[in-house]
Design a protein around this nucleic acid. Structure first.
Length: 366
DNA sequence: CTTATTTGACCCTC
DNA sequence: GAGGGTCAAATAAG
Protein backbone atom coordinates (compact mmCIF):
# COMPACT_ATOMS: atom_id res chain seq x y z
CA UNK A 1 0.00 0.00 0.00
CA UNK A 2 1.57 3.22 -1.14
CA UNK A 3 0.98 6.25 0.96
CA UNK A 4 0.09 9.32 -0.97
CA UNK A 5 1.85 12.31 0.49
CA UNK A 6 -1.42 14.18 0.28
CA UNK A 7 -3.40 11.38 1.82
CA UNK A 8 -5.73 12.28 4.65
CA UNK A 9 -5.64 10.41 7.90
CA UNK A 10 -9.13 8.94 7.47
CA UNK A 11 -8.06 7.58 4.10
CA UNK A 12 -4.95 6.05 5.60
CA UNK A 13 -7.02 4.48 8.35
CA UNK A 14 -9.59 3.28 5.84
CA UNK A 15 -6.79 1.62 3.95
CA UNK A 16 -5.62 0.03 7.15
CA UNK A 17 -9.06 -1.28 7.83
CA UNK A 18 -9.17 -2.72 4.35
CA UNK A 19 -5.83 -4.43 4.91
CA UNK A 20 -7.01 -5.78 8.23
CA UNK A 21 -10.09 -7.28 6.63
CA UNK A 22 -8.04 -8.90 3.92
CA UNK A 23 -5.62 -10.28 6.48
CA UNK A 24 -8.46 -11.74 8.52
CA UNK A 25 -9.85 -13.42 5.41
CA UNK A 26 -6.42 -14.77 4.62
CA UNK A 27 -5.98 -16.14 8.14
CA UNK A 28 -9.38 -17.80 8.19
CA UNK A 29 -7.93 -20.94 6.62
CA UNK A 30 -4.58 -22.74 6.82
CA UNK A 31 -1.77 -21.00 5.00
CA UNK A 32 0.88 -22.51 2.78
CA UNK A 33 4.24 -20.86 2.42
CA UNK A 34 3.11 -18.31 -0.15
CA UNK A 35 0.06 -17.55 1.94
CA UNK A 36 2.27 -16.88 4.92
CA UNK A 37 4.34 -14.49 2.86
CA UNK A 38 1.24 -12.64 1.77
CA UNK A 39 0.00 -12.47 5.35
CA UNK A 40 3.34 -11.15 6.45
CA UNK A 41 3.21 -8.50 3.75
CA UNK A 42 -0.25 -7.46 4.92
CA UNK A 43 0.98 -7.34 8.48
CA UNK A 44 3.93 -5.14 7.55
CA UNK A 45 1.67 -2.83 5.63
CA UNK A 46 -0.61 -2.61 8.63
CA UNK A 47 2.36 -1.62 10.74
CA UNK A 48 3.13 1.11 8.27
CA UNK A 49 -0.46 2.31 8.48
CA UNK A 50 -0.06 2.72 12.21
CA UNK A 51 3.31 4.41 11.81
CA UNK A 52 2.00 6.85 9.24
CA UNK A 53 -1.15 7.53 11.25
CA UNK A 54 0.82 8.19 14.41
CA UNK A 55 3.21 10.36 12.50
CA UNK A 56 0.38 12.39 11.03
CA UNK A 57 -1.21 12.80 14.43
CA UNK A 58 1.99 13.77 16.15
CA UNK A 59 3.58 16.02 13.57
CA UNK A 60 0.67 18.22 12.71
CA UNK A 61 -2.64 17.44 14.26
CA UNK A 62 -4.69 19.91 12.35
CA UNK A 63 -3.18 19.20 8.98
CA UNK A 64 -2.95 15.50 9.52
CA UNK A 65 -6.50 15.14 10.58
CA UNK A 66 -7.62 17.21 7.65
CA UNK A 67 -10.69 17.83 9.63
CA UNK A 68 -13.36 17.73 7.05
CA UNK A 69 -15.30 20.85 7.80
CA UNK A 70 -17.39 20.27 4.77
CA UNK A 71 -15.81 22.55 2.26
CA UNK A 72 -13.57 19.74 1.09
CA UNK A 73 -10.77 22.16 0.46
CA UNK A 74 -8.34 20.22 2.57
CA UNK A 75 -7.67 23.34 4.55
CA UNK A 76 -7.07 22.63 8.18
CA UNK A 77 -9.15 23.97 11.02
CA UNK A 78 -9.68 27.69 10.48
CA UNK A 79 -8.23 30.25 12.80
CA UNK A 80 -11.36 30.37 14.85
CA UNK A 81 -9.60 29.05 17.89
CA UNK A 82 -6.50 31.08 17.47
CA UNK A 83 -5.91 33.58 20.22
CA UNK A 84 -6.25 37.28 19.55
CA UNK A 85 -5.83 40.35 21.64
CA UNK A 86 -8.80 42.01 23.18
CA UNK A 87 -9.19 45.76 23.47
CA UNK A 88 -7.58 45.61 26.87
CA UNK A 89 -4.64 43.81 25.39
CA UNK A 90 -5.59 40.58 27.08
CA UNK A 91 -4.97 37.51 24.99
CA UNK A 92 -8.28 35.81 24.42
CA UNK A 93 -9.99 33.65 21.85
CA UNK A 94 -12.57 35.32 19.67
CA UNK A 95 -15.51 33.39 20.99
CA UNK A 96 -16.56 34.29 24.49
CA UNK A 97 -17.82 30.80 25.11
CA UNK A 98 -14.52 29.34 24.05
CA UNK A 99 -12.46 31.98 25.79
CA UNK A 100 -11.75 29.93 28.86
CA UNK A 101 -11.67 26.65 27.05
CA UNK A 102 -9.10 24.90 24.96
CA UNK A 103 -9.16 22.02 22.57
CA UNK A 104 -7.07 19.41 24.32
CA UNK A 105 -7.08 16.79 21.61
CA UNK A 106 -8.71 15.48 18.51
CA UNK A 107 -9.02 11.98 17.31
CA UNK A 108 -10.58 9.98 14.55
CA UNK A 109 -12.29 6.89 15.85
CA UNK A 110 -15.01 4.44 14.89
CA UNK A 111 -16.14 4.30 18.52
CA UNK A 112 -16.44 7.87 19.83
CA UNK A 113 -18.06 6.86 23.10
CA UNK A 114 -15.54 4.32 24.31
CA UNK A 115 -13.12 6.64 26.04
CA UNK A 116 -13.69 5.65 29.64
CA UNK A 117 -15.82 8.60 30.59
CA UNK A 118 -19.50 9.12 31.02
CA UNK A 119 -20.89 11.84 28.78
CA UNK A 120 -24.20 13.66 28.74
CA UNK A 121 -25.41 15.00 25.45
CA UNK A 122 -26.40 18.63 25.64
CA UNK A 123 -26.74 19.66 22.05
CA UNK A 124 -26.90 18.68 18.46
CA UNK A 125 -26.32 20.94 15.53
CA UNK A 126 -26.57 20.62 11.81
CA UNK A 127 -23.29 21.91 10.47
CA UNK A 128 -23.21 23.67 7.16
CA UNK A 129 -22.09 21.47 4.28
CA UNK A 130 -21.76 18.49 6.57
CA UNK A 131 -23.78 15.43 5.87
CA UNK A 132 -24.06 14.55 9.53
CA UNK A 133 -24.99 16.58 12.58
CA UNK A 134 -22.46 17.48 15.21
CA UNK A 135 -23.14 16.26 18.74
CA UNK A 136 -22.11 18.04 21.91
CA UNK A 137 -21.36 16.25 25.16
CA UNK A 138 -20.35 17.26 28.67
CA UNK A 139 -18.66 15.02 31.19
CA UNK A 140 -21.30 13.38 33.31
CA UNK A 141 -19.07 12.07 36.08
CA UNK A 142 -19.41 15.34 37.89
CA UNK A 143 -21.70 18.23 37.22
CA UNK A 144 -18.89 20.74 37.53
CA UNK A 145 -16.38 18.90 35.41
CA UNK A 146 -15.36 21.20 32.59
CA UNK A 147 -14.55 18.51 30.06
CA UNK A 148 -16.58 18.50 26.89
CA UNK A 149 -16.40 16.78 23.57
CA UNK A 150 -17.80 17.27 20.12
CA UNK A 151 -18.51 14.31 17.93
CA UNK A 152 -18.76 14.73 14.21
CA UNK A 153 -19.30 11.81 11.90
CA UNK A 154 -16.99 12.16 8.94
CA UNK A 155 -18.39 12.57 5.48
CA UNK A 156 -17.46 10.37 2.64
CA UNK A 157 -15.45 7.68 4.39
CA UNK A 158 -18.23 5.35 5.36
CA UNK A 159 -17.63 3.54 2.12
CA UNK A 160 -14.29 2.89 0.61
CA UNK A 161 -13.17 4.37 -2.63
CA UNK A 162 -11.03 1.32 -2.94
CA UNK A 163 -13.99 -0.69 -4.03
CA UNK A 164 -16.25 -3.28 -2.61
CA UNK A 165 -15.63 -2.69 1.05
CA UNK A 166 -18.17 -0.93 3.22
CA UNK A 167 -16.40 0.63 6.19
CA UNK A 168 -17.93 1.46 9.55
CA UNK A 169 -18.67 5.12 10.23
CA UNK A 170 -15.73 7.14 11.46
CA UNK A 171 -16.07 10.05 13.85
CA UNK A 172 -13.94 13.02 14.62
CA UNK A 173 -13.95 13.59 18.35
CA UNK A 174 -12.75 16.94 19.67
CA UNK A 175 -12.05 17.05 23.38
CA UNK A 176 -12.30 20.42 25.05
CA UNK A 177 -10.93 21.10 28.52
CA UNK A 178 -9.23 18.66 30.83
CA UNK A 179 -11.31 16.52 33.13
CA UNK A 180 -11.67 17.90 36.63
CA UNK A 181 -14.18 15.27 37.71
CA UNK A 182 -11.60 13.06 39.41
CA UNK A 183 -10.52 15.85 41.71
CA UNK A 184 -14.08 17.03 42.29
CA UNK A 185 -15.20 13.53 43.13
CA UNK A 186 -12.28 13.06 45.48
CA UNK A 187 -13.35 16.22 47.19
CA UNK A 188 -16.91 14.97 47.41
CA UNK A 189 -15.80 11.75 49.01
CA UNK A 190 -13.68 13.58 51.52
CA UNK A 191 -16.50 15.98 52.25
CA UNK A 192 -18.96 13.16 52.77
CA UNK A 193 -16.62 11.59 55.25
CA UNK A 194 -16.13 14.85 57.09
CA UNK A 195 -19.86 15.29 57.40
CA UNK A 196 -20.55 11.84 58.74
CA UNK A 197 -17.46 9.95 59.73
CA UNK A 198 -19.07 7.15 61.73
CA UNK A 199 -22.25 6.21 59.96
CA UNK A 200 -23.45 2.79 58.96
CA UNK A 201 -23.09 4.08 55.44
CA UNK A 202 -19.43 4.37 56.01
CA UNK A 203 -19.31 0.84 57.25
CA UNK A 204 -20.96 -0.25 54.05
CA UNK A 205 -18.43 1.74 52.08
CA UNK A 206 -15.71 0.24 54.15
CA UNK A 207 -16.79 -3.18 53.05
CA UNK A 208 -16.99 -2.10 49.47
CA UNK A 209 -13.58 -0.60 49.63
CA UNK A 210 -12.15 -3.81 50.97
CA UNK A 211 -13.84 -5.74 48.24
CA UNK A 212 -12.48 -3.35 45.69
CA UNK A 213 -15.90 -2.26 44.56
CA UNK A 214 -16.34 1.29 43.46
CA UNK A 215 -19.53 2.66 44.82
CA UNK A 216 -20.68 5.08 42.22
CA UNK A 217 -23.47 6.41 44.36
CA UNK A 218 -23.29 10.13 44.58
CA UNK A 219 -21.87 11.44 47.76
CA UNK A 220 -24.38 12.96 50.08
CA UNK A 221 -24.11 16.41 51.46
CA UNK A 222 -24.30 18.47 48.31
CA UNK A 223 -20.66 17.97 47.53
CA UNK A 224 -21.18 19.18 44.00
CA UNK A 225 -21.53 22.66 45.27
CA UNK A 226 -18.48 22.69 47.45
CA UNK A 227 -15.91 25.23 46.45
CA UNK A 228 -12.75 23.61 45.26
CA UNK A 229 -9.67 24.31 43.33
CA UNK A 230 -6.53 22.34 42.89
CA UNK A 231 -3.51 24.07 44.20
CA UNK A 232 0.06 23.20 43.41
CA UNK A 233 1.40 19.84 44.51
CA UNK A 234 3.34 21.42 47.34
CA UNK A 235 0.27 22.07 49.38
CA UNK A 236 0.66 18.95 51.46
CA UNK A 237 0.10 19.97 55.00
CA UNK A 238 -2.59 22.00 56.66
CA UNK A 239 -6.17 20.83 57.12
CA UNK A 240 -7.25 18.37 59.74
CA UNK A 241 -4.92 16.01 61.53
CA UNK A 242 -6.85 13.18 59.94
CA UNK A 243 -6.24 14.49 56.48
CA UNK A 244 -2.61 15.09 57.22
CA UNK A 245 -2.34 11.52 58.38
CA UNK A 246 -3.85 10.13 55.20
CA UNK A 247 -1.70 12.29 52.99
CA UNK A 248 1.31 11.28 54.99
CA UNK A 249 0.38 7.62 54.72
CA UNK A 250 0.17 7.86 50.97
CA UNK A 251 3.35 9.81 50.74
CA UNK A 252 5.07 7.12 52.78
CA UNK A 253 3.81 4.37 50.53
CA UNK A 254 4.56 6.28 47.40
CA UNK A 255 8.08 7.02 48.43
CA UNK A 256 8.64 3.40 49.32
CA UNK A 257 9.49 4.46 52.84
CA UNK A 258 8.88 2.91 56.22
CA UNK A 259 6.48 0.18 55.28
CA UNK A 260 6.39 -2.48 57.98
CA UNK A 261 7.42 -5.99 57.12
CA UNK A 262 4.57 -8.46 56.64
CA UNK A 263 5.29 -9.95 60.02
CA UNK A 264 4.48 -6.64 61.61
CA UNK A 265 1.24 -6.23 59.76
CA UNK A 266 -2.03 -6.64 61.58
CA UNK A 267 -4.41 -9.20 60.13
CA UNK A 268 -6.60 -8.10 57.29
CA UNK A 269 -9.95 -6.88 58.58
CA UNK A 270 -11.93 -9.48 56.70
CA UNK A 271 -9.54 -12.21 57.87
CA UNK A 272 -10.17 -11.19 61.44
CA UNK A 273 -13.88 -11.07 60.91
CA UNK A 274 -13.90 -14.54 59.47
CA UNK A 275 -11.58 -15.88 62.13
CA UNK A 276 -9.19 -16.85 59.44
CA UNK A 277 -5.62 -16.80 60.73
CA UNK A 278 -4.15 -16.91 57.25
CA UNK A 279 -1.31 -14.51 56.73
CA UNK A 280 -2.07 -11.33 54.89
CA UNK A 281 0.30 -11.28 51.94
CA UNK A 282 0.98 -7.91 50.47
CA UNK A 283 1.46 -7.53 46.76
CA UNK A 284 4.58 -5.81 45.45
CA UNK A 285 4.70 -2.09 45.88
CA UNK A 286 3.35 -0.44 42.77
CA UNK A 287 5.61 2.14 41.23
CA UNK A 288 3.60 5.24 41.86
CA UNK A 289 4.39 8.84 42.46
CA UNK A 290 2.42 11.67 43.91
CA UNK A 291 1.25 13.94 41.15
CA UNK A 292 -0.95 16.24 43.12
CA UNK A 293 -1.95 15.82 46.67
CA UNK A 294 -2.61 17.58 49.86
CA UNK A 295 -5.28 19.58 51.51
CA UNK A 296 -7.24 22.21 49.69
CA UNK A 297 -7.86 25.66 51.07
CA UNK A 298 -11.17 24.57 52.46
CA UNK A 299 -9.50 21.81 54.45
CA UNK A 300 -10.62 18.94 52.27
CA UNK A 301 -8.17 16.30 51.22
CA UNK A 302 -7.40 15.46 47.67
CA UNK A 303 -4.83 13.65 45.68
CA UNK A 304 -4.00 12.36 42.28
CA UNK A 305 -1.36 9.71 41.89
CA UNK A 306 0.31 8.56 38.72
CA UNK A 307 1.74 5.09 38.29
CA UNK A 308 4.78 4.20 36.25
CA UNK A 309 2.73 4.03 33.09
CA UNK A 310 1.50 7.55 33.63
CA UNK A 311 -1.96 6.33 34.48
CA UNK A 312 -3.71 8.54 37.00
CA UNK A 313 -5.29 7.21 40.16
CA UNK A 314 -7.83 9.06 42.21
CA UNK A 315 -9.62 8.30 45.48
CA UNK A 316 -12.76 6.38 44.78
CA UNK A 317 -16.10 7.46 46.24
CA UNK A 318 -15.70 4.81 48.90
CA UNK A 319 -12.50 6.38 50.14
CA UNK A 320 -11.56 7.52 53.59
CA UNK A 321 -13.61 5.01 55.49
CA UNK A 322 -12.72 4.44 59.12
CA UNK A 323 -12.02 0.94 60.32
CA UNK A 324 -12.69 0.61 63.98
CA UNK A 325 -10.76 -2.42 64.94
CA UNK A 326 -8.64 -3.44 67.91
CA UNK A 327 -9.00 -0.03 69.41
CA UNK A 328 -7.50 1.68 66.43
CA UNK A 329 -9.16 4.17 64.21
CA UNK A 330 -7.62 3.12 60.96
CA UNK A 331 -8.07 4.96 57.73
CA UNK A 332 -8.62 3.22 54.46
CA UNK A 333 -8.17 5.00 51.21
CA UNK A 334 -9.10 3.25 48.02
CA UNK A 335 -7.53 4.60 44.91
CA UNK A 336 -9.38 3.90 41.73
CA UNK A 337 -8.49 4.12 38.10
CA UNK A 338 -10.75 5.95 35.71
CA UNK A 339 -11.93 2.67 34.28
CA UNK A 340 -13.19 1.76 37.72
CA UNK A 341 -12.12 -1.84 37.47
CA UNK A 342 -8.65 -1.66 38.96
CA UNK A 343 -8.05 -0.57 42.51
CA UNK A 344 -5.31 0.12 44.91
CA UNK A 345 -5.96 0.41 48.59
CA UNK A 346 -3.81 2.29 51.04
CA UNK A 347 -4.56 2.08 54.70
CA UNK A 348 -2.95 3.45 57.78
CA UNK A 349 -3.36 4.67 61.30
CA UNK A 350 -3.77 8.31 62.09
CA UNK A 351 -0.23 8.20 63.41
CA UNK A 352 0.78 7.82 59.75
CA UNK A 353 1.90 4.21 60.05
CA UNK A 354 1.08 2.53 56.79
CA UNK A 355 0.17 -1.05 57.39
CA UNK A 356 -1.13 -2.36 54.13
CA UNK A 357 -1.59 -1.60 50.56
CA UNK A 358 -3.05 -3.59 47.82
CA UNK A 359 -3.78 -3.76 44.14
CA UNK A 360 -6.21 -5.49 41.83
CA UNK A 361 -9.51 -5.18 43.53
CA UNK A 362 -9.54 -7.33 46.66
CA UNK A 363 -7.55 -7.82 49.79
CA UNK A 364 -5.48 -10.82 49.01
CA UNK A 365 -4.45 -13.49 51.43
CA UNK A 366 -2.19 -16.47 51.07
C1' DC B 1 -40.34 10.12 40.09
C1' DT B 2 -35.77 10.70 38.36
C1' DT B 3 -32.63 10.96 34.77
C1' DA B 4 -31.33 11.32 30.02
C1' DT B 5 -32.23 12.96 25.44
C1' DT B 6 -34.21 15.92 21.99
C1' DT B 7 -34.65 20.15 19.75
C1' DG B 8 -35.93 24.92 18.96
C1' DA B 9 -34.45 29.26 20.68
C1' DC B 10 -31.00 32.14 22.04
C1' DC B 11 -26.27 34.07 22.40
C1' DC B 12 -21.90 35.32 20.59
C1' DT B 13 -18.54 36.19 17.04
C1' DC B 14 -17.29 37.10 12.47
C1' DG C 1 -27.16 37.72 8.72
C1' DA C 2 -24.62 33.33 8.94
C1' DG C 3 -22.75 29.88 11.55
C1' DG C 4 -21.36 27.46 15.65
C1' DG C 5 -22.07 26.61 20.55
C1' DT C 6 -25.12 26.42 24.53
C1' DC C 7 -29.37 26.61 27.12
C1' DA C 8 -33.52 24.90 28.74
C1' DA C 9 -38.27 23.29 28.20
C1' DA C 10 -40.45 19.32 26.49
C1' DT C 11 -40.34 14.60 25.95
C1' DA C 12 -38.85 9.83 26.51
C1' DA C 13 -37.04 6.16 29.08
C1' DG C 14 -36.15 3.46 33.13
Amino acid sequence: MAFDLDAKLPDVLAGGYHLSTQLQALLSHPLDRSGQEVAMAFSQELSRVFEVSMSMLNSNNAAALEVNTGNSTGVSTPAKDQRVRSDSGEVVTPSKKIREEGVTSKEITPSPHKDGYQWRKYGQKKIQNCKFSRYYYKCNRHRRCLAKKKVQQQDGISSSSRGQLMLPPVFEVTYVNEHTCHVLRANDAAAARMVSPRTTNNRRHHHNALAGIVDTTRSAGGGDDLPFHLSSPDIIGGGTEENKAIVSCLATVISGGAVPSPAEWPPAPEASAAGDPAAFVPPPLPAVSMDHGGVADDGEMMMVMVDDTGFPWVPSPSSFCPIEEAGHDQQLVTMSSYGGDVHMGVAGFPDTTVWAQHTCGAWRRA
